[in-house]
Amino acid sequence: MQVNIGITQEQRKSIAEGLAVLLADSYTLYLKTHNYHWNVTGPMFQSLHTLFEGQYQELAVAVDDIAERIRALGEFAPGSYKEFAKITTIQEAEGTPTAEEMIKDLVKGHEAIAKTSRNIVPIAGNASDEVTLDILTQRMTVHEKTAWMLRSMVTTN
């Protein structure tokens, strides 16, 4: 059946394309955060291990919400890391960074997702897609706050 929700097919496709990048970014950051949760070492191990766990769990819920919105718009969500790797704006980490390097890298990832979300806002706004705008507002709120909290843990710029 055709999707008839008051948003044109062209608008839905454009929004879904933006959300696909957001999904790829979110999934990439999820994997990175989970990796750091497993591999963090040093005097802040316990606090960072716990912090990273909460962050990757939040991202796991987010990727589901984003993918389901893409489907509600009548498009298919990318679902493999091969697809995600083609469109993500987040770089994978190489090797095993120090705890402070992990924190700095996660700041960059959260800021990248805030920017990706913000780039979709005008597209969704022009289509009066309040549902997507709500998701984007939630994602920007989470990622900007998380980036701030992580930045507050870093001793150097």
Rank of each mutant, 00 (worst) to 15 (best):
S26Y: 04
N119R: 08
F76H: 12
I103R: 04
L133G: 05
D134W: 08
I135F: 07
P43E: 08
T137V: 09
T41V: 14
I135M: 10
K82V: 15
L31T: 10
T116M: 00
T88F: 07
Y30G: 05
T50E: 13
G79D: 07
N35C: 01
F76M: 12
V107K: 04
N126I: 02
P78V: 15
E58P: 01
E68S: 07
N35E: 09
K115R: 10
A85G: 07
G109I: 01
V21G: 00
M102P: 12
F45I: 12
T28P: 02
D129R: 08
G54K: 12
N126V: 04
N119V: 09
Q91G: 02
Y27R: 04
F45P: 01
H49F: 10
E101V: 14
Y81M: 15
P97I: 11
G95D: 09
L31Q: 07
G54M: 04
T41R: 07
Q91M: 13
Y36F: 15
T96V: 14
A112L: 06
L133R: 05
H34W: 12
A85K: 12
I90P: 02
H49S: 03
A72D: 09
Q46S: 14
S80M: 10
T89G: 04
T137P: 00
A114W: 03
D65T: 15
Y81G: 01
V131P: 00
I135G: 00
R139M: 08
D65G: 00
Y56N: 03
T141W: 09
V121H: 02
D129A: 09
S80A: 12
K104V: 12
K104T: 07
I135A: 06
L106K: 03
T33F: 00
S80T: 15
D64P: 09
T33R: 04
V61N: 06
I113N: 01
Y30W: 14
K86P: 02
M102L: 06
T98L: 10
Q138T: 15
